[in-house]
Design a protein around this nucleic acid. Structure first.
Lengths: 201, 201
DNA sequence: TTCATTTCTTGTCATTTGCCAAGAGCAACG
DNA sequence: CGTTGCTCTTGGCAAATGACAAGAAATGAA
């Protein structure tokens, strides 16, 4: 073994993530995982900046990230949160090779594994199981956004807060309240009041 | 030619739709289009009913459709509108083979072409161009939903109404105002008032 | 046509949420 | 330490939107 060889992290978590989708066999999961490269992003650093093209398909193993866009007045609006065991990339920019309107920033130190767009396409071409996996990732993201849209229309801000607290409590450990507020579609002032009411119950 | 042979509609529009994506050559578009079957849905009939699995990948050539779900109080909420030259299916139910929570109903007489889930997968397997096309359809739907979510958070109801009127005027020719209202995330009463204010300008 | 049903509008009032400003709490840094 | 900046909370008020009910308009069926 060479002198200053630095052992990479184990990609065991990535292999499990692929395999547990039930779309990728363990053997294939290992092949796929071995083409991914390790990546670390320290807190406050950006995984993606608006104006750039999202070019990395990133499996977030540990850490936490927030995606946000800017409205016409320049206010930032949280579009998504990512915790461990999720795939992170901006769908439209990544697949259309277009400039991203979104930023994705680490709000805690992150570790994980990535492949580039061209590497992903090569894998898709070679491995039908990985294609199925890729489709499932897209479909899952799409479905959860549909659910979120429906809740925006049919539920009150307090109900949405309540649901988020129950289904994604980790968000409250990693994100500022004002960022959670814009994700819920309300101002930080309103969220503060909702929390006050909520704590009485 | 047999006696009561009924010539099918021409699938020229479908071929164009595939080819104009710039992801499918004309020759391949013809191969793909020839595996689609013609389908007509008359006004008020359902393309998909909640409780069933979305099993048809439908190219809507002419007509108009509305997708809607029910909230916990039983009110119907419009989740999407479809006009000509679009692909219609419920992503989550179709790809996950799960029971649909949504209905999709023709609000005008519709004609088009469909393939089933298994036919689609066979085509995906055989034709990488069609895979690219299928991915683009998913990505486009995802991106437009993201845009809509951002507008729900950052824009007023009147701004959303205004944008819909400008970008999708055909919706107003085919859908009831109460159905447009729930799509915009407001009550029919509010939409009526917004229209009143709007008409003064 | 006539009747019944549904859709749309409008009025009144209540509720939610936003906007603005002030202040408290907290962390980072010299 | 003490200052600075950022986040969160709170109060007062305004604006947007919803809930409910009544009536007008449009639609569809007999």
């Amino acid at each position: 073994m060479p002198g200053n060889f630095i052992p990479s992290m184990s990609n065991q978590k990535l292999i499990q993530f692929l395999n547990r989708s039930n779309l990728v066999s363990l053997a294939t999961a290992e092949i796929i995982a071995n083409t991914f490269n390790p990546k670390e992003i320290s807190r406050n650093n950006f995984f993606l900046k608006e104006g750039k093209i999202s070019n990395e398909y990133f499996f977030l193993e540990t850490g936490f990230m927030r995606a946000f866009a800017h409205d016409t007045d320049g206010n930032d609006v949280t579009t998504n949160f990512y915790s461990g065991n999720q795939v992170v990339f901006e769908v439209s920019s990544f697949f259309n090779r277009s400039i991203s309107k979104e930023n994705i920033q680490a709000t805690a130190d992150c570790t994980g594994w990535f492949i580039t767009y061209s590497e992903l396409n090569n894998l898709f071409h070679e491995l039908s199981e990985f294609r199925e996996f890729g489709r499932a990732v897209l479909v899952k993201g799409f479905a959860s956004l549909k659910t979120r849209m429906l809740s925006m229309i049919t539920e009150t801000a307090e109900q949405r807060y309540d649901a988020l607290l129950k289904t994604n409590p980790e968000i409250f450990q990693h994100a500022a309240l004002k960022h959670i507020a814009s994700y819920l579609g309300i101002t930080d002032t309103s969220l503060s009041r909702i929390r006050k009411e909520y704590s009485k119950k």
